[in-house]
Design a protein around this nucleic acid. Structure first.
Length: 495
RNA sequence: GCUCCGGUAGUGUAGUCCGGUCAAUCAUUCCGGCCUUUCGAGCCGAAGACCCGGGUUCAAAUCCCGGCCGGAGCACCA
């Protein structure tokens, strides 16, 4: 009996309207979304999530994707001048070219205007309590003595903050919320403080700097952001910022939160912690094969499409997640396999002397199933095989040297063998195991892996594959990173 | 201490708002088989989950209450 195909199609079509990413409410007319990092290091896998999801929504609904640098702390989270460019570069690589780049440290005068308006409206006041005093009052739901200061007086004090009459720690500008709010985290939060340290971009031009909740809230309004995607650690920010929006008569954007992300292969990391480790000499650079940065993945031969697919499938849940790179690797493998040339790389090589009629050269395909052409590998009576393949080798054991010949082990110490044939079909009939090999005068190769460094010898043709992603047969996919007279450096992607 | 979130297979994820079609989706991982001159790719198959306890209801993964577990905020950091 035949089932009507149109019915099946109807059933199938019903269940998957939005595979991957959930629909955004209120996005039908287009969206404006931003990714707002602090440029105190290069983008990590966590940043990639922000870049990819935001830009993906913009792609889906139409609108604008903004990259905004929230670089308003010259001290604790001091921006790195190079990092601004790194973000733009990595966004581009991830297929998320920003429609506009905004740098908060360029826009202090706008923030001052909003601050002054808030003061005039009685929505902000200059607080001269020291930090501990204010905390005690706040925790007790008591207003501080400065809360009732008149707008005129506040404006004068604000002027002193800006012109130097007040020093660091002497005063902050607070946003008036509800001092009786049941959540102490929301009571009268600080919007500006005095910082006299130089800022890497604007030097000592300003001495009053906004804090994140103020800067972010004001920018989101100024830029017309419609939807904010942020970590759930910033859930209170929305509640705090709504007070500012109410004072100003603005409408708050829609918000979506996501939980913390932890990656098995990298553990938990923060840019600040990575920066310390790097400065302590634990890594060779931000693109060290062990780093959870976008640039490290790129160097290893991970393709942006694999990362995109992976991250979009993760979605935006509020639960904290602990994920494995395995899914990224699986995606990547599918992408690179068809175009990755096959090469022989012998890890921890051991010399083997082979008697009999050994071919002078092996001709091997660059790909087992697709026509990527052929390569020639010089062979001879002395060849290298990997120590890994020698573990249970005994005299009398037979195996095939891939694409070359079938041999029988004569002795293991020293390692000797003799040719028993060249026909691959013979090997198949005899069910021989197949191992790869390299000529003794091959090219030295070092493989930089997330879990260490492997060294060995590879076929010389690897020299031609600079910047290509290749598969070292029976070893894994790597990107050829560096080629010199002395040898080759490869970065390991995955098996 | 105060406050706020969350809890579906090993790992993620769909479904939860508007209870039934969920004996619960998809991916990855693991296991088995096929194929292959790679331990890669491909193909076939299998295993695996609604945190616990009450309640509402004809019916609960979905609604309510309590508990347990996990995370976060309470900075002159982002």
């Amino acid at each position: 009996m035949e089932i009507a195909p149109e019915l099946l199609a109807e059933l199938g079509g019903k269940k998957e309207p939005d595979k991957g990413l959930a629909a955004l409410s209120g996005a039908e007319g287009g969206v404006v979304m931003r990714f707002a990092p602090n440029p105190n290091g290069p983008p990590t896998v966590g940043s990639a999530r922000g870049i990819i999801i935001n830009s993906e929504y913009v792609r889906r609904y139409g609108g604008r994707f903004l990259l905004r640098f929230d670089d308003t702390d010259p001290v604790n989270k001091r921006p790195m001048p190079e990092a601004y460019g790194w973000y733009i570069e990595d966004c581009r690589w991830l297929g998320a070219v920003p429609d506009e780049v905004i740098i908060a440290s360029d826009r202090l005068p706008r923030y001052y205007e909003v601050a002054e308006e808030l003061i005039k409206r009685g929505g902000a006041y200059v607080c001269r309590c020291d930090q501990a005093t204010f905390k005690a009052l706040k925790d007790g739901a008591k207003p501080c003595p400065h809360r009732g200061t008149s707008p005129e007086e506040n404006m004068a004090l604000w002027g002193e903050m800006i012109n130097g009459g007040l020093g660091p720690g002497d005063a902050v500008l607070r946003i008036k919320t509800d001092i009786l709010h049941k959540d102490p985290a929301l009571r009268d939060w600080a919007a500006f403080r005095i910082v006299t340290a130089d800022h890497p971009r604007v030097g000592d031009r300003y001495r009053v700097w906004p804090l994140l909740d103020f800067e972010s809230a004001v920018e989101d309004h100024l830029l017309g952001v419609t939807h904010i995607l942020r970590g759930k650690d910033l859930m209170d920010s929305e509640r705090r910022q709504r007070y500012l929006y109410d004072h100003m008569g603005w409408n708050y954007p829609k918000t979506i939160h996501w939980g913390r992300i932890k990656i098995h292969q990298f553990g938990s990391f923060s840019t600040s912690a990575l920066r310390r480790a790097l400065e302590a000499g634990e890594y060779s650079g931000w693109d060290d094969a062990r780093m959870p940065t976008v640039r490290a993945l790129r160097r290893r031969g991970i393709r942006p499409e694999a990362l995109r697919k992976f991250i979009i499938e993760l979605g935006v849940g509020e639960t904290d997640i602990s994920i494995s790179m395995d899914s990224v690797y699986a995606e990547n493998r599918k992408i690179i396999d068809p175009s990755a040339r096959r090469r022989f790389f012998v890890k921890d090589p051991v010399e083997m002397e082979i008697g009999g009629e050994i071919p002078e050269v092996a001709t091997a395909p660059f790909h087992p199933t697709l026509d990527l052409g052929l390569r020639e590998i010089p062979a001879g009576p002395k060849l290298l095989v990997s120590a890994d393949d020698l573990a249970d080798l005994k005299a009398g054991v037979r195996f095939r040297l891939k694409d070359l010949c079938n041999v029988e082990v004569v002795s293991t110490d020293p390692l000797r063998g003799r040719v028993i044939g060249t026909d691959p079909h013979q090997a198949k009939e005899m069910k021989l195991r197949i191992i790869h090999w390299a000529p003794p005068d091959g090219v030295p190769v070092r493989v930089m892996r997330p879990d260490g460094v492997d060294s060995g010898i590879g076929e010389v043709g690897i020299r031609e594959d600079l910047d290509r992603i290749v598969q070292f047969e029976r070893y894994g996919f790597v990107r050829i990173d560096y080629v010199s007279q002395d040898g080759v450096v490869a970065y390991f992607a995955h098996r």
